[in-house]
Amino acid sequence: MSSESTTIDGDEYTKVAEIADFEAGNDGIAVDVNGIEIAIFEADGDLYAISNRCSHQNAPLCKAGERKINADHTWTESRGGVNEEKCTVSCPWHLWEWDLETGKNEVSGERIATFDVAVRDENVFVRI
């Protein structure tokens, strides 16, 4: 990944991806910005950046919706994923649901970090 940065509206953003990196199907991508793990998801045409680790048991949220991420005999075709209507992502391990805009889990009241996302010239940037 490039460590390219840019200033947007007076704040420093770091380039983390390109629009072409997001395939249809709401799969997330994981990026690392200065040691911070971030998952980026597309939902209803918008991009959201959230901590890549579920606070429940540290599962990688970027794996939400992937096929059989664990033992074949214990997992379904896909586990977790993005709910575009609710603007949430569900953890692939225990299905804890996180609001992509606020980072809040409604059941526990816990929050995980969210990050501002900007797109410029087909490049995706996040603000830490």
Results as ranks from 00 to 15, higher is better:
107 V>F: 10
108 S>R: 02
110 E>A: 11
97 E>R: 10
96 W>R: 12
102 T>S: 06
102 T>C: 12
102 T>A: 09
93 W>Y: 08
122 E>M: 10
87 C>D: 09
116 D>H: 10
86 K>E: 15
122 E>D: 15
121 D>F: 14
120 R>W: 12
112 I>L: 09
89 V>Q: 05
104 K>W: 09
113 A>P: 14
119 V>C: 08
111 R>T: 14
111 R>N: 12
117 V>K: 03
96 W>C: 15
103 G>C: 03
98 W>V: 01
122 E>F: 10
103 G>D: 10
113 A>E: 15
120 R>K: 15
114 T>Q: 10
114 T>H: 09
87 C>S: 13
89 V>I: 11
92 P>V: 13
115 F>I: 07
106 E>D: 13
101 E>V: 12
101 E>A: 14
95 L>P: 04
89 V>R: 02
109 G>Q: 07
109 G>W: 06
94 H>Y: 00
89 V>K: 07
98 W>C: 03
103 G>F: 01
89 V>C: 01
91 C>F: 00
104 K>T: 01
99 D>W: 07
118 A>G: 02
106 E>A: 11
110 E>W: 10
113 A>V: 10
112 I>T: 04
103 G>R: 00
90 S>P: 10
119 V>H: 04
118 A>P: 05
106 E>P: 05
110 E>G: 02
97 E>W: 01
93 W>L: 13
110 E>D: 13
100 L>R: 09
109 G>D: 01
99 D>A: 01
119 V>R: 10
95 L>V: 07
94 H>D: 05
117 V>N: 08
115 F>D: 06
104 K>V: 06
110 E>H: 10
92 P>H: 03
105 N>Q: 05
86 K>H: 11
89 V>G: 05
101 E>T: 11
97 E>I: 04
92 P>S: 05
105 N>M: 03
88 T>R: 00
100 L>Q: 02
117 V>L: 10
99 D>R: 02
119 V>W: 02
114 T>W: 11
115 F>Q: 07
122 E>T: 08
96 W>V: 15
91 C>W: 02
92 P>M: 04
110 E>M: 09
111 R>S: 12
102 T>Y: 12
